[in-house]
Design a protein around this nucleic acid. Structure first.
Lengths: 150, 150
DNA sequence: CCTCATTATGTGCATATACATATATCCAGA
DNA sequence: TCTGGATATATGTATATGCACATAATGAGG
């Protein structure tokens, strides 16, 4: 006969797309942070270093738009990076603007973190496989587009 | 001739799966929060109400495992819900445990929020379409599985 | 019944994140 | 040149999130 016992499954999928996305984001964030811990940097910060490495000098506002972060959020997120000496800020020609740049130390931190980042990244890639990986990327971009159009 | 001018595109996709996921999560979170604002509740809180509605009375720890949230995070996330009177906590038989339950007010808030939540949800569903929606769900679950296996 | 390993939750600390609002600039007209 | 609207960033406030660590309670052996 059936036991009147609720199995403790890991969990069911929710009907809410936002909940599912946030949940996956939390999970994967923990993974990347675990790997990056030895370098004493978190994935959110590492992501900013990556972005800055690609863009070169850039204003806070532009960077925010680029990574889809409220620019006032960036004001605070940049502080720890500054404290660590990974970035530097200077005034732009337009004196309202702050131009951000990766420092030598920042570039070094990025280099040192890369292998650790790669471990986490590879884990996801190996599990999903190239095609699924690409598909996910596309779907995420579509979600973002749908979310932002006014 | 070509202008030596960098177009200000909205942005390129990053090579980091974690960055892409977090970014999409931020975007979609803003969408759901915009819709839910009239009911004065945020999507993270709304998600917890939804979860509690499905599980019925449940311990903090189990709830955390269910939604993939560190149980100590839950300690704090539950506070605003309590303040609003949407949930209630009581001691379990095991006196270490806290049992959470949705109150009548909580259930009402859930009901009132549903149409607003649905607006955001529909927007995503309509943009992606049923098959992509399902695909995304599956991919997110796989990401989570990959992230959690030790 | 006592003790120790295990388990559930709370706290300290740090960061992430957004919105409303404030402040400093810039700039297009009058 | 003066002025009001637009733009870039900062601050106040609130919540989200996790880890290391602290505390309380349970339960298995001895």
């Amino acid at each position: 006969m059936m036991a009147a016992h609720k199995k403790e499954t890991t969990m069911p999928t929710m009907p809410c797309a936002c909940a599912n996305l946030r949940r996956a984001a939390r999970s994967i964030t923990r993974l990347y942070n675990r790997e990056l811990r030895p370098e004493n940097i978190e994935v959110t910060q590492f992501t900013l270093l990556m972005a800055l490495d690609r863009t070169g000098d850039i204003s806070q506002g532009k960077l925010g738009r680029l990574v889809s972060l409220d620019s006032t959020t960036l004001t605070r997120m940049l502080k720890p990076l500054n404290k660590q000496g990974w970035i530097q800020e200077r005034e732009g020609d337009d004196r309202r603007v702050r131009i951000i740049r990766l420092t030598t130390a920042g570039r070094a931190k990025l280099q040192h973190g890369l292998p650790l980042w790669k471990r986490a990244q590879t884990r996801i890639e190996d599990t999903l496989g190239e095609p699924s990986m690409k598909k996910l990327e596309v779907l995420l971009a579509r979600v973002e587009a749908a979310s932002e159009s006014k």
